[in-house]
Design a protein around this nucleic acid. Sequence first.
DNA 1: AATAAGGACACTC
DNA 2: GAGTGTCCTTATT
Length: 168
Amino acid sequence: MEWNCGNVQKWLLWTEHLYRLPQVGKAFQDLDGKDLCSMSEEDFRQRSPQCSETLHAHLDIWKSEADELWSEADSSCSGQPIHLWQFLRELLLKPHSYGRCIRWLNKEKGIFKIEDSAHVARLWGLRKNRPAMNYDKLSRSIRQYYKKGIIRKPDISQRLVYQFVHPV
DNA sequence: AATAAGGACACTC
DNA sequence: GAGTGTCCTTATT
């Protein structure tokens, strides 16, 4: 609801890339976030007959995750390079926003579980501007941390459960 | 089918 | 050269 026309265009660009859509930005040039949110699927159809279904569905996903995704998109504009382990820490520090997709199993020991791998990967992709990010690739990066002593598997290995070697 | 481990290579800073 | 991102094979759950 706070987006200006530029934010809308950025979202469109990202969505085009994600779903390999043709460029539709021009058809939405004059819209800000409020306009976009008030659009029905029929409204989308009038502006972009080819992509209306995809755009409308994807906007629904964003609406349902509005707070968290807005903060991600916002910080990616002026963002410093962030490491994956720092990003995961950030999410874990905000259980109110992210507790449904990643949470501590044992905060003292730094053990955490990724409850929704696709969601966490999507958030990471947003932060890094990598629309093609998924859990396969995110987890590969986590594994790189094993030999660096940043993250490891807990003593009793469980799916989607990792442990920070140096808990805060 | 999803996740896990790690090699290999490309890319950006 | 670091830190991924991408792709892949193989094994495990």
